[in-house]
């Protein structure tokens, strides 16, 4: 039965209709042009590219085996890194919560505060931690304070944005119920909003702490404290075996941080 029906028609089928086809080709072409332009225009000395695998391999060889004689200095620099991450996360809470409150559409007092809140969040998030660090090192000189401030300034945007979203997603009905009892604004926040955003709050803080640990490992490269100072110093002195040890220490720290956050997350939720 299939065959005689097939004889009647010799129909064509193609995956996309004409317009879709054209759009697809346009996207492909644009991408291709962009790739060709970028590859040709970029300031790369191509012979070096082909040599890169060798270079990477030889760097790896110079790092082997890791050398542990500086372990106590590395350990205290790691502690410093953890302190920077932890303190700045704690301190950020005090700034980020009010900011998220005025940056959430359903709690902000008025249009102007909404825009102020959003402006703070956007400028905080758009500038990378290490660029913040550059600025604070210029102001306060090299050291942990610049690092803490840098991490804080970047974290405000992160925590503030996510908390703001959590506030915007709350169930409105308890808020109305509290307002109906004649409670003041702050009491409504305390009774109807805080309980609802509590789980999100802990999850966000834990997440950011984990991120801040990683961020704190590089602050030292611009002089803002932590293990990065030691890393930069060892690289400058071509002490590659010490560099390897530091890298190992960072991996261990990051893994520990991840393990701890996943435990905390389970405890909180």
């Amino acid at each position: 039965m299939v065959d005689h029906a097939a004889k009647l028609t010799d129909r064509v089928w193609s995956r996309y209709d004409r317009k879709e086809q054209l759009t697809r080709y346009a996207v492909y072409l644009a991408t291709l042009i962009a790739v060709v332009w970028a590859v040709r225009d970029i300031d790369i000395f191509w012979p070096w590219v082909w040599d890169a695998p060798n270079q990477i391999q030889s760097l790896g060889a110079r790092m082997w085996p890791p050398e542990f004689s500086k372990w106590s200095a590395i350990f205290s620099a790691m502690l410093e890194t953890v302190h920077i991450a932890t303190l700045s996360t704690m301190l950020t809470i005090f700034i980020a919560l009010p900011v998220s409150y005025i940056a959430a559409q359903n709690t902000t007092p008025n249009k102007i505060t909404l825009w102020i809140g959003r402006f703070i969040l956007v400028s905080s998030r758009s500038v990378n931690t290490i660029i913040w660090a550059l600025l604070f090192v210029a102001i306060f000189g090299p050291g942990v304070l610049a690092g803490i401030l840098a991490v804080m300034f970047r974290s405000v945007g992160f925590i503030g944005k996510l908390m703001g979203e959590a506030i915007e997603e709350i169930d409105r009905r308890p808020v109305e119920a509290m307002e109906a009892t004649g409670a003041s604004k702050m009491k409504v926040v305390l009774y109807a909003i805080v309980p609802q955003v509590m789980p999100a709050f802990f999850a966000i803080i834990i997440l950011r702490w984990d991120i801040n640990i990683r961020e704190s490992t590089v602050l030292g490269l611009v002089g803002a404290g932590g293990i990065g100072v030691l890393l930069q110093g060892s690289i400058d002195m071509f002490a590659w075996q010490t560099v390897a040890t530091i890298l190992l220490a960072i991996v261990v720290l990051v893994i520990l941080g991840e393990a701890l956050t996943s435990v905390l997350r389970k405890k909180v939720i």
Partner: peptide, 25 residues
């Protein structure tokens, strides 16, 4: 995933020299 891109970047700069090549890697 284990290293911050900036750390990876210094290592690549050390290996293949300054410039966009290290950035791309």
């Amino acid at each position: 995933r284990s290293f911050h891109p900036v750390i990876v970047a210094i290592l690549f700069v050390a290996a293949v020299g300054f410039g966009p090549m290290a950035g791309i890697l």
